[in-house]
């Protein structure tokens, strides 16, 4: 999948995460994380992001996460939605990932 525009998903509500996905052509993955639980779960959140991007086969991308304590399942779904939006995808193969 190729990122062609900015895609966003999520919110800044407690227990949610706002994810913004952008292109980063030829420059790999650029992931930035702000989180209310960064000290406790920062590594785990980045692991989920990397893993989800692997499954989506995205290698060049900018991802910005503003996390308000979202669970892993929420982070995964918000990221998928943001990526599909950023790729201009018309179909959402949700189940193929899980």
């Amino acid at each position: 999948m190729k990122i062609i525009k900015t895609g966003m998903a999520g919110s800044l509500e407690s227990s949610d995460v706002l994810i913004t996905v952008d292109s980063n052509t030829g420059k790999g993955r650029n992931i930035s994380l702000e989180s209310t639980v960064k000290r406790q779960y920062g590594k785990q959140i980045l692991k989920v992001v990397e893993h989800t991007l692997d499954l989506l086969e995205i290698s060049d991308v900018t991802v910005r996460l503003e996390d308000k304590g979202a669970l892993d399942c929420t982070i995964r779904s918000r990221l998928e939605a943001a990526v599909y939006r950023a790729a201009g995808s018309e179909t959402y193969p949700w189940e193929s990932l899980t």
Partner: peptide
């Protein structure tokens, strides 16, 4: 099981 295991605060 819901939130995972947190890293210890330093």
């Amino acid at each position: 099981r819901l939130v995972g295991r947190p890293d210890p605060i330093e």
